[in-house]
Design a protein around this nucleic acid. Structure first.
Length: 105
DNA sequence: TATTTGACCAAGA
DNA sequence: ATCTTGGCCAAAT
């Protein structure tokens, strides 16, 4: 577990159910500008059920990826999880993204 | 120590 | 709306 990863994961725990956050927001909250590194952390440390990485999306509202993949099949699972929490997704895009976006103070 | 690599981002064309 | 470019920075190799 890398130092940045610890911060990121702890921040992820603060994201309420039914909301989503972004890689950039996580980086900002963690006090770094390495939003790209966030994605790498997820890829190399997939704690799938324990850490809600499915609530992390790109800034433009697209899903990004899930479990190290970007293919439609894998993303669909992510979508289902989000939908279960009340987040609507259409064509790999979050609906009402600005409304359910969660940022760290 | 050096190089490569992205589940990224913003700005142009 | 889509595509390309350049920048970004921690982690992996």
């Amino acid at each position: 577990m890398t130092p940045l990863a610890k911060k990121v994961y702890s921040l992820l725990d603060t994201v309420p159910r039914g909301k989503v956050t972004t890689y950039k927001a996580l980086a900002h909250g963690a006090g770094t500008k390495a939003y790209r590194a966030i994605g790498q952390i997820m890829k190399y440390n997939p704690n799938a059920p324990e850490t809600p990485c499915h609530r992390v999306v790109a800034t433009n509202g697209t899903l990004g990826g899930y479990m190290g993949k970007t293919d439609k099949q894998t993303l669909q699972k992510k979508i289902d999880l989000l939908k279960k929490e009340g987040v609507e997704v259409k064509n790999n895009r979050i609906l009402n993204f600005k409304n359910i976006f969660y940022s760290f103070s």
